[in-house]
Structures are given as C-alpha cells and as structure tokens.
Design a protein around this nucleic acid. Structure first.
Lengths: 187, 187
DNA sequence: GTTGACAATCTAGCAATGCTTTATTTATGT
DNA sequence: ACATAAATAAAGCATTGCTAGATTGTCAAC
C-alpha cells in the first residue's frame, strides 16, 4: 500500500508549497497581493486545488499564522539572557517580540490582525498558541499574582506598540524608551 | 451670486450624507459591507458622483475617521473627574478610551486600523488628531519628563488592549484589572 | 487488451468589487 | 430660444473569491 502513502506525501508537500508561497508573496508585496489565482500560478496548479486544501482564503492566512506562532514562541524563550534578572528577562522578551513584529510584518499581520479562523483563549486553542502565550507568561509571573491578566496586559502593550508604529501612528524613533515605559508596568 | 453658493451648500450636504451613510453602514454590517455601490444607492446618486467628493474608498474611511477624532478628543477630556488625582485622571482617560473603542468598533477601526490616508505624527497632521493625542498627553505629563514618548506608550497599551479584545485574542473579562496594570506604568 | 468506474484536475463561469470612460441629461448665460 | 458648459448616469474594465461542470488520467475487473 505504498501508493496511497505516496499520494498523501505529495498532498502534504503541495500544501506546504501553498503556505510557503503565501508567506513569501505576503512578505514581498503585502497580503492584498496574495490572491488565490496568484498562489495557484505559483504552485503550478489550477485554483480549485487550493480549495481541496483550505476551505477559503482565510484558512491559508491561518496556516501561515500557525507557522508564525511556531517561530515566535521559541524565539521569545531563547531571547532571555542567561542569568538575567526578572526585569532584564521581561525586557528581553519585549525587545524580541517587537523585533519579530518589525522584521516579519506580514507574518505578524497574519498572526494578530487578519481574519485567520484561528481561535484564541478558547478550549480548542492550538498548542503553539498556548506555548507562545506561555513564553510571555514565564517572565511576567515573578511580578504578579494575577499573572494571566498581567500577561494579557503586557502582550497588549507590545501589540499596540507594534501596530501603531507599523501604521505610522507613532514615530519609528524612541522605540527603546517606549519599551522601558512598558516594562515599568512591572517591578 | 446665490447660485454657486447654493451649489456649494448642496455639495457639502451631499458629502455629509456620504460620510454618514458610510459610518452607519460600517457600524451596522462592518467595513467590508461599505462598498462604493452601496453608498451610491444610499445617497441616491450614481457611483462616479462619490469620486467627485473622494479620491477613492480609503478617503471615505478617512473622512469617517476624522469625525471619530472630533469625538474622541473631547470625550477623553471630559472623562477626567473634577478634582481627580493624577493617577485617577490617567485611569479615567484609559477607561474612557476603551469604552469609546468598544462602543463604536467600526469608528475605532477607521481611526486606527484601516488604511485611511490620514497622516499622523507629521507636519501636516490635522489639528483634531493633535488634539486627541494632546488629551492623553495632559494626564501623562505629571508623571514623566519624556511625556511625549510616555504618551505614545500609554496610547499603544490602550490600543493593544482594544485590538486584542476586539479580535478575540484575549478574554473579554477582567478588563478593569488590565487597565490597572497599564496605569501602573506611571506613578 | 478492453472497458468501466472513480478520483484528480482543469476550464469556464458567477457575482461582487473599486474605479473610469463615454454618453446623456440638466442647468446656465446670452 | 439656443448654444454651451456643467452635472450626472449608464456601461464597461480588470480584478477578486469561489464553484459547477467538463475532462483527463488511473487502475481494477473482465
């Protein structure tokens, strides 16, 4: 029964190519340029085969977003310097988060702004999402008893910084000073 | 020369009707439902007429956003209780900001999320925008020497709270506790 | 081998969008 | 009353997400 296995393998390969193409295109020309037609052209299949993999365009965004969470979580964890004080740790995570947001704006957009069909803070929330939230919670925990709520606040502050700067609402200078203010929420 | 005046009057009236229709439709069915065709139908003119008022759809969003800033600024200023301590004042503004965001989600979206053609933090930034930022700056000033940067951080934190909750990224409970954490940035 | 069923894939099309070009009506000044 | 100019509308273009129906390829049974 190697045939059906080969087919399954080819199928997942093709799915990966769709996701990779979407991510690349989004990062290069923005998500508005990621059309189903263009993706089809990119993977050299006709449009309808994309719908054999994803229910709709949003689901493609969601798949890219999931990849993003798979990268952000570990990146936040490794960002903390060895032997860092709690305050340094929270600073490191904040800086790493913003760096991620600004270096991969399209990926960040898929994860936190665009409709992606992903469900957060629910019982069926994927583990990668929980892990990413956990990476932030780890450094907030030393400061607060209500660490879950505190982590939401911390995350929100970082997200706001990322979004307002991405949209040109605040200056792209003084980034570090703003981080310092945010970190001052704790300790 | 009463004719051209009448025409000008009719023109601005029509423009107002476009903006009002856009705002109403957006608040009722979301911005995706605000199409140029539907707006044309609403004001009982053909599509090209809208392009005699606005260069494109984004400009209509921008007009609605401007209205929003005209309301948010005063709302933030009046939100501060008489005789409030600096800490209470900043709390009041934070609460009022979030209330605004949650009560008029579409308006908020036009102001801070959607492409609107508005220019922030630039030399040609409209006065209403500066005033709204000023309303936040007033309550931050007592706490920091670098009050401009601090206000950006404060604003970002509030925006993050609004956005993450609006998109279901964080729970809709514990709103007050999160505000308390944000306010703890100061004082 | 031939045939028939089934799965994989594509062609072609629908309805909707933002925006523009071209035609037509309406209003204006002489 | 009429020519001209301004205001408005009808129709069309290119693009989008998504889908129904036709077509191709594959593989087992006879």
């Amino acid at each position: 029964m190697g045939i059906s296995e080969r087919k399954e393998r080819e199928r997942t390969e093709r799915e990966q190519r769709i996701i990779a193409a979407a991510r690349l295109l989004a990062e290069r020309d923005g998500w508005a340029s990621v059309t189903v037609r263009r993706l089809a052209q990119e993977i050299e299949y006709s449009q309808p085969v994309l719908y054999a993999h994803f229910v709709n365009r949003d689901a493609i965004v969601g798949a890219v977003a999931l990849e993003g969470f798979g990268e952000l979580g570990p990146m936040l964890r490794t960002s903390v310097r060895r032997g860092a004080t709690p305050t340094e740790a929270i600073q490191d995570v904040a800086t790493a988060y913003l760096q991620f947001a600004f270096e991969r704006p399209a990926l960040y957009e898929a994860m936190f702004v665009l409709p992606s069909g992903l469900r957060f803070a629910k019982s069926d929330t994927p583990q990668v999402l929980r892990d990413t939230f956990g990476a932030m919670m780890v450094v907030v925990e030393p400061f607060c008893a209500d660490y879950e709520i505190a982590t939401e606040s911390f995350w929100a502050a970082l997200h706001g910084l990322a979004e307002l700067e991405r949209h040109g609402r605040i200056r792209s200078t003084h980034r570090d000073e703003r981080v310092r203010h945010i970190v001052a929420m704790f300790g």
